[in-house]
Design a protein around this nucleic acid. Structure first.
Lengths: 146, 146
DNA sequence: CTTACTGCAAAAAGTTTGCACCAGC
DNA sequence: GCTGGTGCAAACTTTTTGCAGTAAG
């Protein structure tokens, strides 16, 4: 729950209010092992927090992405998904079987980035890595998905 | 133009026909330095190739993505974009200034992947890396975008 | 109090689909 | 010729917006 406090701090630092709906969205994303679509967030929030509108979810996701607290994913999926931005430089291991997301706490590119940038004459300011495959549980089944 | 031939071969190998529209889409993606949205492709194709429908562009993009010839990108942009799948394991340097995409011909993760996978108990079958920053021309301007 | 945030309903944007016709192989 | 591909228009899904009312700081 420490992470949540930090996030709330981030919000206030940017002059954003901490509304019931906004905090619900953040909590939901924080709780989920899997990235969520806007609609999924909406549905889950609604279970506890009665009248909440999908429009608000969209508005907040946009705000949070702009604020850098949330990132989009899901290029391999049908729909755009959202998840909390990870701590600086952790990346994702995404299981094609169960769709869980495992975080790499150590960035494998950290040191490579500068080097690559220099070689290509490019100033790398940000990077995104997604590793796809199968986690231990989904193991070698391989074809399981869908 | 060698690349195009290869792609066409890929198509036929999968029993997909090489229609005028399909080839136009591929050429367009091949020509562009920047990933394109479905609509952009449609508009550009239409300039030369009269009556073409947006629906066909969507259908083909879907087919091509499934066939593995095209990939989605654009998590940092508003809309989903498409580009030709790169040769096995090249990755992207994406300029935040001019939006051009530079390809890394050498995969920095190649050897790291297995290692990471093992350490995390994860079988990595695929990965996606996007490096963002500024290319030489856009250089240190830094704030240029928008 | 002030200003940002919200819900609702309506609108816009993006994507898919049914159908009759057409074109690669 | 057969089968998959296409254009068009309509349907659908996803996302955005205007507005009046509400709540956080």
């Amino acid at each position: 729950m420490d992470k949540l406090k930090m996030l709330y701090g981030e919000l206030q630092a940017r002059g954003l209010k901490l509304t019931k709906q906004r905090s619900a969205i953040i909590k939901m994303l924080n709780k989920s092992r899997v990235p969520l679509t806007a609609e999924e967030i909406f549905l889950r929030i609604r279970e506890t927090n009665d009248n909440t509108s999908l429009a608000t979810v969209y508005r907040n996701l946009k705000t949070l992405v702009t604020a850098g607290l949330v990132v989009k994913t899901g290029l391999l999926e049908e729909k755009v998904q959202y998840r909390l931005a990870s701590k600086p430089h952790s990346h994702d291991l995404i299981c094609l079987g169960c769709h869980k997301v495992f975080e790499l706490t150590q960035c494998p590119l950290e040191h490579l980035c500068e080097f690559i940038g220099q070689r290509e004459g490019f100033t790398v300011t940000e990077h995104r890595i997604e590793l796809y495959g199968y986690c231990q549980e989904c193991g070698s089944q391989g074809k399981k998905k869908k």
